[in-house]
Amino acid sequence: MKEILIIGGSGAIGSALISEYVNNDIKITIASRKKQNLDPHINQIIYDYEQHNEIKLSTKIKFDLIIFATGHLHNEHFKPEKSLKDIDKNAFQFSYHINCIAPLILLSQLRNNLTDHTKIVFLSARVGSISANELGGWYAYRMSKAALNMMIKNLSIELKRKYKNIIVCGMHPGTVDSKLSKPYSGFVKHGIFTPSQSAAMLKKVIDELNLKHSGKIYDYAFQEIAY
């Protein structure tokens, strides 16, 4: 039986990914801020990036797939920056913590739960691509996602030294009808996916990942995104 872990299981995409993976051949563990009304066979762990708590799992548990379905663009305190006058140190610290630092710390806690064939997937974003940036703005979000992309590359190099077949990738889920993107969806000129549509496409890409894809960033259509 395969073991998978979804971090951010209470979010729009995380919840949809749970639905995609629920079947008799997969044992699911989810980590989220609050307990949900889910199938009793799903193992739920209360975990909050902001609380700096620790996930403690038996080292006997080895995950075939770990998905970090988390991310921060805005909240009631911080909004995406339009120009230099909007720069706020606290907003930057929060974005970097949620989008990059906390996932890395959590993965460090899970390092004994990896196997030679584990796939580790982080939700990245196309706006984290330096070479594709033509609009500017959104400093904290863009920069923290670019840092996440570097982290993915670093992990793919380090972990391969111990686990020859491990795969570490970033995934852009598209613009999804969710709390994260809703305030800005009116400015989007391309299609907007439902969480279930995005999750189904992400699962298809994840299923097809192999070693040549490790350390890279892909979108929902399996198109590589440049750093």
Score class of each variant (00 low, 15 high):
161 R>C: 08
211 L>Q: 14
127 V>N: 06
153 K>H: 10
19 S>N: 15
55 I>T: 07
25 D>Q: 14
107 L>F: 09
22 V>M: 09
163 Y>V: 09
95 S>N: 12
226 A>K: 15
200 A>C: 08
191 G>E: 15
196 S>I: 12
13 I>G: 01
28 I>N: 01
100 C>Y: 06
39 D>T: 03
3 E>S: 11
38 L>N: 03
208 E>S: 15
59 T>V: 05
101 I>A: 04
108 S>P: 00
91 A>V: 00
203 K>F: 04
224 E>M: 14
7 I>G: 00
167 I>Q: 05
121 V>P: 01
39 D>R: 11
209 L>Y: 13
169 C>N: 14
205 V>R: 06
196 S>C: 07
159 L>I: 10
32 S>I: 03
142 R>Q: 08
189 K>D: 08
199 A>Q: 06
117 H>D: 13
26 I>W: 10
80 P>G: 06
198 S>N: 05
77 H>E: 13
52 H>R: 12
205 V>W: 04
114 L>M: 09
94 F>D: 04
154 N>V: 11
217 I>M: 13
80 P>I: 10
227 Y>Q: 08
203 K>H: 08
106 L>N: 07
55 I>L: 13
186 G>E: 08
104 L>N: 12
18 I>P: 00
11 G>D: 01
225 I>L: 09
190 H>F: 14
21 Y>P: 02
33 R>G: 04
53 N>P: 01
31 A>M: 07
167 I>P: 00
65 L>Y: 09
156 S>Q: 04
68 F>D: 01
168 V>H: 08
215 G>D: 06
48 D>R: 11
132 A>H: 15
218 Y>F: 15
32 S>T: 08
134 E>G: 13
81 E>I: 06
131 S>V: 15
221 A>H: 13
141 Y>S: 05
217 I>P: 00
132 A>M: 12
113 N>D: 04
54 E>P: 00
146 A>R: 06
106 L>P: 00
121 V>H: 02
85 K>C: 01
222 F>G: 00
106 L>Q: 03
187 F>E: 11
226 A>I: 14
140 A>N: 15
129 S>P: 07
173 P>Q: 09
145 K>E: 04
54 E>V: 13
54 E>D: 13
209 L>V: 03
180 L>V: 00
19 S>R: 14
2 K>G: 03
227 Y>L: 14
